[in-house]
C-alpha cells in the first residue's frame, strides 16, 4: 500500500514539453511569486503555469472541486480537512507582515509587545502613551489619537497578524482566535481594501498605524516599526529576520504550521506562508505541479527575494520533496 522512499528514484526535473498547461488558483499574496516563477519556467521548459489570484478560500474550493491542478492558501488546512478532501499540502514560501505608521517627524519607532497589544486592545489611545514612550526615549511623540488601519476584506495577511496578536497578547484582545476578518472591537478603526488600500490610507493620514505585507511597505515608502519578538529582542523587518522565523517552526502533519511568534533571537514575530494544495488522486498532473515547484525551490530563490518573499530553508524543501516522492510517485491505491 504505502512505501516510504528516498529521493532517489523520484524524477522532479521536467523535460522540455511544448503545449502542456498547469492551472492553479488561490492566494493573492503568493500570486506575484508564482507568476514570476511561471514566466521563467515557461522559457526553460515550455510548460505553461497559469495562476489565478482568486483568494485563498476560492482556491481551496476550486481544488476541492478539482477545477484546478493546484490551489494555494495562506491559512493551512488541518490534517483532518486534508484527509476529507483527499489533498496533499506543502508550503511554497514565507512572507512577513509589518506595522507601518504615519508620524512625519518620528523615524524608527520601536514597539514592545505590550505596546502592540495595548494598541490592538484599545487600551492605548494616544501616540504619547507611556508604553510607547518607554521604548522610544529621545523621540517626541505627538498627543494625537492613534488610528488603526486594518483590512476591510477577508485576508490571509489579517489571519497571520491576528495569530501573532492572539499568541502575544493572550487575554487582552476582544477576539480569541486567529481570523481572516476578526471583530476588532476598536472604535478608532479604519478599514481599507487590500494591502494597497491599507498602504494608501497610512500614506495619506497622519497618526495612523496598520499592518501590510512587507512588499507594500517597501513599495509605498512607508515607515515601519521595529518589533519586540518572543525572545524579547527588538528586530527590524528584513528577509533575514523572516527566514529566521522558519528555522524553529514545528511542521506538523500535512505541513500544518503556525509561523508567527516563533522563538529565536533574530526572529521577526509576524511571519506567514502560503501552502499549495494538490488533489492526491491525480498523479500525472501532480507530477507536473511538483516539477514546477521543484524548479521554483531550486532556481527561484533570487526571484523570491527580489519580491520580498522568504524562500523556504533547505531542510524544509527536502521534507517537501520526500512527501512528493511518497505520495505522488509511489502512492498506490
Amino acid at each position: 500500500m504505502y512505501k516510504r522512499a528516498t529521493l532517489v528514484g523520484c524524477l522532479f526535473t521536467a523535460s522540455v514539453a511544448i503545449g502542456i498547461e498547469v492551472n492553479g488558483a488561490g492566494s493573492s499574496a503568493i500570486a506575484p511569486l508564482i507568476q514570476a516563477w511561471a514566466k521563467e519556467y515557461y522559457k526553460e521548459t515550455g510548460i505553461k503555469v497559469n495562476y489565478q489570484a482568486v483568494g485563498s478560500g476560492s482556491g481551496i474550493r476550486m481544488v476541492s472541486q478539482r477545477m484546478v491542478d493546484f490551489g494555494a492558501t495562506d491559512a493551512p488546512l488541518k490534517p483532518n480537512q486534508l484527509e476529507k478532501k483527499n489533498l496533499l499540502q506543502f508550503p511554497i514560501a514565507a512572507f512577513g507582515a509589518v506595522f507601518a505608521y504615519n508620524l512625519p517627524n518620528v523615524d524608527g519607532l520601536k514597539l514592545s509587545t505590550r505596546a502592540v497589544c495595548g494598541i490592538f486592545s484599545g487600551k492605548i489611545k494616544y501616540w504619547d502613551d507611556p508604553l510607547i514612550l518607554e521604548t522610544n526615549p529621545g523621540k517626541t511623540l505627538p498627543h494625537i489619537p492613534i488610528l488603526v488601519v486594518v483590512r476591510a476584506d477577508k485576508s490571509g495577511t489579517t489571519y497571520t497578524v491576528t495569530s501573532y496578536l492572539v499568541k502575544a497578547c493572550k487575554e487582552e484582545l476582544p477576539f480569541k482566535k486567529p481570523s481572516k476578518k476578526p471583530r476588532w472591537g476598536l472604535s478608532n478603526l479604519v478599514a481599507a481594501k487590500g494591502n494597497a488600500g491599507v498602504a494608501a490610507v497610512i500614506q495619506k493620514k497622519f497618526g495612523t498605524i496598520g499592518y501590510v505585507e512587507y512588499t507594500y511597505a517597501v513599495k509605498g515608502g512607508l515607515k515601519v516599526t521595529t518589533l519586540q519578538n518572543r525572545d524579547g529582542n527588538y528586530v527590524k523587518p528584513s528577509l533575514e529576520s523572516f527566514q529566521a522565523a522558519l528555522k524553529n517552526v514545528h511542521w506538523g502533519e500535512g505541513f500544518y504550521a503556525d509561523l508567527t511568534y516563533q522563538p529565536g533571537s533574530n526572529t521577526w514575530p509576524i511571519v506567514g506562508a502560503t501552502w499549495a494544495l494538490l488533489p492526491l488522486e491525480k498523479k500525472e498532473r501532480n507530477k507536473l505541479v511538483a516539477q514546477f515547484f521543484h524548479w521554483g525551490f531550486s532556481k527561484g530563490d533570487e526571484k523570491a527575494k527580489e519580491l520580498y518573499y522568504a524562500p523556504l530553508p533547505k531542510d524544509v524543501v527536502n521534507k517537501v520533496k520526500v512527501t512528493w516522492c511518497d505520495s505522488i510517485y509511489l502512492y498506490n491505491y
Binding site: 493573492s28 483568494g55 485563498s56 478560500g57 476560492s58 474550493r61 477577508k154 490571509g156 476578518k181 481594501k193
Partner: peptide, 14 residues
Amino acid sequence: IANEFGEADSDLEY
C-alpha cells in the same frame, strides 16, 4: 460580496 467571496471558507458562508 466583493470583500468576502474570494476568502469564503465554509459552505454556509459561500
